[in-house]
């Protein structure tokens, strides 16, 4: 049995068909809950984030433009922003000395997961061309929502250095992927 694609479901939501949202939830809730939980590391708050994200998806489905990328990426971005909003609201008091924090996504093998994603091979190659701490900072910020001070603590680098490195790392990623 083939299911409607996410892009089709999103345009149905935009056209005022609320049941299509349920189809999106059924296909994507595990992935999106995982994205929110990686940022918040708290299942109750991750549920709040996915809840808020789906209200946003219902309201903004018409803004999704297939020409700009895969529906999966758009849904994950909406969810991660909802998680980041909660993170900012709670003041990012998450302890940055949690020894388990960030071990998984920053291992070099983990970057293999990028293969098979749209643009994933390119991003992986460009990330691997960055200095290691630079790459770790970018991945920790994106996946776990770490702030500059938390990344500085995690990488044992001065805050100013981390800020400058991340900015420079982003700009070299952009050049590398152009």
């Amino acid at each position: 049995m083939s299911e409607p694609t996410l892009a089709v479901l999103l345009s149905a939501v935009a056209a005022g068909e609320p049941s299509a949202l349920r189809g999106i939830y059924q296909q994507q809730s595990l992935r999106l809950f995982g994205v929110a939980n990686a940022v918040l590391r708290d299942r109750d708050q991750a549920a709040d984030a996915v809840h808020n994200a789906f209200l946003n998806i219902a309201r903004r489905a018409g803004q999704y433009d297939p020409a700009r990328g895969a529906a999966e990426a758009w849904l994950a971005a909406v969810t991660r922003y909802a998680a980041l909003d909660i993170l900012r609201a709670r003041g990012r008091e998450m302890p940055s000395d949690d020894p388990a924090l960030g071990d998984i996504p920053v291992e070099p093998e983990a970057l293999q997961l990028l293969e098979g994603q749209e643009n994933g091979t390119r991003l992986r190659a460009c990330l691997q061309s960055l200095p290691e701490k630079n790459r770790r900072g970018i991945v920790l910020a994106f996946v776990h929502g770490l702030s500059h001070p938390q990344i500085a603590a995690q990488l044992e680098l001065p805050l100013g250095t981390v800020k400058a490195w991340i900015r420079r790392g982003l700009l070299s990623l952009r050049d590398c992927m152009a």
Binding site: L21, R22, Y25, S29, L30, R31, F33, G34, V35, N37, A38, V39, R43, A46, A47, V50, H51, F54, L55, R68, G69, A70, E72, A73, W74, A76, A77, R80, I104, P105, A110, L111, L113, L114, G116, Q117, E118, N119, G120, L123, R124, V139, F142, V143, L173, R174, M177
Partner: peptide
């Protein structure tokens, strides 16, 4: 967003409680 989107794959999928959809 398009450049960094593949990084979403690094977050391990997790199952929310079934009640979440009811709440939404």
């Amino acid at each position: 967003e398009a450049r960094l989107a593949p990084l979403h794959a690094l977050a391990p999928p997790e199952a929310p409680l079934p009640e979440l959809w009811v709440r939404i």
